[in-house]
């Protein structure tokens, strides 16, 4: 039994599972359907033509700026809400608040299982579920991002809090610190840079998702791309993609600048 368990949970197990999954997918996939449509080539030609003739007209630029701004506010409120959820939940999922072994194990397993459940549902599916509940409103959109992102952040933050070096924490405890004081004076300060760094990476992902999810009652970049696509205005599509790229690159730049200033 032990050998079986070792193979399943160890490295060979992972290699076997991934290889089997890949080979099965190669066998199952219907390669005949992967032949490009005859209209596909002319479609690519149209898209590339748009690339060389982006629509920088003033009225469309106003539309693009507005759409980008909507996506920014949408993504920012979602990540903010996700952080508000994630930080306290990560304290529970790390199990560091409780001294009693039984309470700690219960808190860790219940909270982590719940987080896994929330995480396993993609934001698009959350969007559908929430749209049924609240209609196609900005609130549905923000919640559809904040809920799964909050769960991902909480899980990763909990790992950061657990992985903090132990000797300084032991020293705090020998100064009389309770578990919650150790968290506030030791674990959180030691982990917050990693948390911030990962939070920024997730902010990028959130803005990308916000752009895509903007069909839920929001006139963001994704919505405008869809409109321009339907009108076959590929010059406009490219302008919107440039705005999206600029947005992600600036968040990345901002994040690394902030990290550097904290490291000094």
């Amino acid at each position: 039994m032990n050998v079986v368990r070792k193979v399943i949970t160890g490295r060979p197990g992972v290699v076997i599972i991934l290889t089997t999954a890949f080979l099965t997918s190669v066998y199952i996939a219907d390669w005949n359907r992967a032949i490009p449509r005859s209209s596909g080539l002319s479609g690519i030609y149209e898209i590339l033509k748009g690339f060389s003739q982006p629509d920088f007209s003033q009225e469309f630029l106003i539309v693009a700026v507005q759409a980008t701004w909507t996506t920014i506010t949408f993504g920012t409120s979602a990540i903010f809400l996700a952080l508000v959820i994630a930080i306290p939940v990560s304290f529970l999922a790390s199990g560091t608040l409780f001294r009693s072994f039984v309470v700690r194990i219960t808190s860790v397993s219940v909270v982590r299982m719940f987080l896994a459940l929330v995480r396993s549902i993609h934001e698009l599916i959350w969007a559908w579920i929430l749209a049924i509940l609240f209609g196609f409103s900005p609130m549905s959109g923000v919640l559809a991002l904040a809920i799964p992102y909050g769960a991902i952040l909480a899980r990763v933050f909990a790992d950061f809090l657990n992985d903090v070096p132990q000797p300084p924490l032991r020293a705090l405890q020998s100064s009389g610190a309770s578990n919650i004081q150790t968290l506030l004076y030791g674990r959180f300060p030691s982990a917050y840079k990693d948390m911030l760094s990962y939070g920024f990476y997730r902010f990028e992902c959130c803005l990308r998702s916000a752009a895509v999810l903007s069909f839920i009652g929001l006139q963001g970049i994704g919505y405008q791309i869809e409109v321009s696509m339907q009108d076959l205005q590929f010059g406009q599509v490219w302008v919107l993609i440039y705005f999206l790229i600029a947005l992600i690159v600036s968040v990345d730049w901002w994040g690394s600048k902030l990290r550097r200033s904290l490291a000094e």
Partner: peptide, 25 residues
């Protein structure tokens, strides 16, 4: 009270907060 070789303090906190941690009990 315990003092060790090193790695005993919280690097991200200020000197003041590390010292005042002696009061946590």
């Amino acid at each position: 009270g315990v003092i060790n070789q090193q790695y005993d303090l919280i690097q991200e906190l200020s000197v003041r907060n590390n010292v005042l941690a002696g009061n946590l009990g």
